[in-house]
Amino acid sequence: MADKSRNLSIAKRGLMSFETIMWVFTRLSALGMYALVIFGLIGALVMGARNNMNFADVMRWGFMPNVTHVENTALPDTAPWSSTLWKLTASALVLIAVGHGVHGLVVIADDYIATAKGRQIVRICSGVMILSMLGIGLYLIWTS
């Protein structure tokens, strides 16, 4: 059965529909976030996390490599943790995470909101949320 469906053309499989593209985006953005988190964890270890931070602090840095997340640790100098490299990494994480997260919220909302009007309102709200969260997130990263 699986083999048969794979012989269909892309057009017949409907791979270009918005839902399918977002389905693929959700998976690939998750992989992108894993890569960025691992990059952050490796960077933290290189910069001295092993001797100056506990496990929870390292995890917090890994999920969002922003210097404010390591200010309460025993690190003697947080300057390397606020370099442009980490601001770019955090920005990439925010961009991917907001897209992934807001799309996830729309999927959940669609399970409970059946009317076309209601779903339209959800999509408008999600657009506003994406723009505002991106703006605030990037502002906080680049001014911290």
Binding site: T68, A97, G101, V102, G104, L105, I108, M129, M133, I136, G137, Y139, L140
Partner: peptide, 20 residues
């Protein structure tokens, strides 16, 4: 998975707004 996702979405939204 849904509870975790919603929990994170609420947390991150409020955390960003509080920091801002």
């Amino acid at each position: 998975h849904r509870i975790g996702g919603l929990g994170m979405a609420i947390f991150i939204t409020v955390h960003l707004l509080a920091s801002f």
